[in-house]
Write a protein that binds this DNA or RNA. Sequence first.
RNA 1: GGCGGCGUAGCCAAGUGGCCAAGGCGGAGGUCUGCAAAACCUCUAUUCAGCGGUUCGAAUCCGCUCGCCGCCUCCA
Length: 464
Amino acid sequence: MKVYNTLTRSKEEFVPLTPGHVRIYACGVTVYDLSHIGHARSTMVFDVIQRYFRFKGYRVTFVRNFTDVDDRIIRRANAEGVPATEVSERYIQAFREDMAAIGVAPADAEPKATEHVPDMVVLIERLVAKGFAYTVDGDVYFEIRRFPGYGRLSGKNLDELLAGARVEVDERKRDPRDFALWKSSKPGEPAWPSPWGPGRPGWHIECSVMAMKYLGESFDIHGGGEDLIFPHHECEIAQSEADTGRPFARYWLHNGMVNLRAEKMSKSLGNVLTIREFVKRHEPDAFRLFVLGTHYRHPVDFAEERVRDSARALERLTRLAPDAQARGSGTSGGVPEELGGFRARFEAAMDDDFNTPQALGVLFDLARTLADDRERAATDRHVRERFVAGVSELVALGQVLGLFQRARETAGMPAEVLRLVEERGQARARRDWMRADQLRDEIERLGWSVEDTPSGPRITRKSV
RNA sequence: GGCGGCGUAGCCAAGUGGCCAAGGCGGAGGUCUGCAAAACCUCUAUUCAGCGGUUCGAAUCCGCUCGCCGCCUCCA
């Protein structure tokens, strides 16, 4: 299996530190507001990576943190006149709901920064003791010059970094590029006790501490959005390795951004679409297909129209079996030999740095074969058996990507719609076509559509 | 300015030296059908931003040009 490692800027053969066990840390969100679809993509990408390792038979320990101490959280809390924890808890809850809505599995551990402050203090103390950090007026800074590897991950040249520094120079720092490990808190800000006085941790230190606490001083994969490469991940490496003297994460994986109107989606640009808003209009699996249709390292331009294309593509897979989306139908007995090639191709694609677009291509190829089988299933027993086994295989492979986790939305179908559908069925039975068409129109008005198939009416929610 | 990436059919998107350049959406034709759909089948890039070069052979390697994006500041 090969993965692209940002550290070496090349695809490398993946070999876990402990045979058979993969340890992954993915940077989560800062919980100061609702998460948007850019967060959704990043989270989903690592969800799929994690799922794929399990599919390959690895034991996986997957950690995704919450940053719940941050300037923006404090600002919001002050604006609302509530404690910071109220803001962060609200959005942690929202994040979990959003992730559940789009089928992202919870991580094995989802630690919060505020629950690990004492551990951070300990690490900072050690960095001070070892001469990598210094104290100024209750703040503690990491002295990047003391860590020779600084800049390696992001490919930054230290001199150029200094020249291009756009941050206002803090005269108290020994070097403008030094970053905060600990910030003394002002009145009204959350504070924790420390040898340097009450304060709160800098952003980067939390991930170092939580990653090492849950995964060990060295672990396999550290992931996040590519916008975190510098300075966040660069600083994590410096802090961690300065202390342990050992390699921190061995493979660094970064996902591309979600753009809206050709620009990176971000709060500061005001071009965000929240997950919450998104799922009102689209099926979760349509989003998954949309996201996985582009390789994770590439940027993806968001457009409603493209999600609708994905929704139509999804139909191609789900129409194969009315129950294709039913949970649990993914377990299959024997897969006929002539279908074996699909799984092999699927794995080959995924083994190559999680090439989900190619893996999806395999799924669509399989779907085409099965569609043809279905047409001929009525008259050929062998073909029928192959079709049934093939659909199981399709569902099984789709589930590796996190697709088909829940039954189609008919569960949320209003009783009214159900009643109209039944009435229409009766009208059709007496060949009262006029009444049947009239009922179909009524159902459409309620936001659902009916299609007649050999096995009965198929009701789906109309998307937008 | 520094670093990194991208430019493949109407749209989206794989492919990074050699069978006919995956797959999806859209489109065209056909089969089927109360109707409408859906489904199914077939077709839809002599060509990979442009120009040079290396090679028996390049979308894939090298150089230049043009266009776009990200990071260098909080950011998934």
